[in-house]
Amino acid sequence: MEGGPGEETSALGQWRTSFSRVFQHYLDRSTPHPVRRWLGTLAAAAVYVLRVYFLQGFYIVSYGLGIYILNLLIGFLSPQVDPELDHLDGASLPTKGSDEFRPFVRRLPEFKFWYSITKAFCVAFVMTFFSAFDVPVFWPILLCYWIVLFVLTMKRQILHMIKYRYVPFSVGKKRYTGKKSYASTSGD
């Protein structure tokens, strides 16, 4: 008997495996190009914002998307080992100037942060095609509530950063450039 249910499942499984490998290949190739990745995400966000603007709806979906992105941002700005929660001897952040330098390790790495935000915009975009998600609400209240939530959350995060003296960004930090060659600069 050909074409039975077992063969159909096997063909579907092979297709999913093949698709998964190709998708992972392109994800791996995008890893060393953060600017291009973020520009792609910005384009996806712009398409989503334009769709919501022209449809004049789906504000609950947008609010949920905003809350999710805020949650991801907190993970991105937080250290992997939180000094308030984990009192480990060797893996904590330095709290004094005399402490040994330890690099900042994020709870949510940049690639996973980017990937999660991109997936969220894609899922929210797909949700705008289903009228069940277009719940009528007064959107200015949702916007005000989200702004208050954002300000309070960021205030708490910034106070945490000040208290434990860490900066989650590498802008302005010293970088090792290697030994300089002085032989080529002596030229007569």
Rank of each mutant, 00 (worst) to 15 (best):
M1R: 03
M1S: 09
E2I: 06
E2K: 12
P5A: 11
G6S: 11
E7S: 13
T9D: 10
S10V: 02
A11F: 10
L12K: 09
R16P: 00
T17A: 15
T17P: 00
R21L: 14
R21S: 12
V22W: 09
D28F: 09
S30G: 04
P32R: 10
P32D: 13
V35E: 06
R36P: 00
R36T: 01
W38E: 09
L39S: 09
T41Q: 09
L42A: 15
L50T: 07
R51V: 10
V52M: 13
Y53H: 12
V61A: 07
Y63H: 12
G64T: 05
L65Y: 06
I69N: 11
G75H: 09
S78W: 02
S78L: 05
V81T: 13
P83K: 04
D86G: 00
H87D: 11
K96A: 10
R102V: 14
R102I: 10
V105T: 14
R106P: 03
R107V: 00
P109D: 15
K112S: 11
F113P: 01
W114M: 01
K119C: 13
A120N: 05
F125I: 01
V126T: 09
T128L: 04
F130G: 00
F130D: 08
D134N: 15
D134V: 02
V137W: 08
P140T: 08
P140D: 08
L143T: 14
C144R: 04
Y145T: 12
V151K: 01
L152K: 06
K155F: 10
Y166G: 08
V167F: 11
V167L: 13
R175C: 06
Y176C: 12
T177E: 12
G178H: 03
K179G: 02
K179W: 05
K180A: 14
T185F: 14
T185A: 13
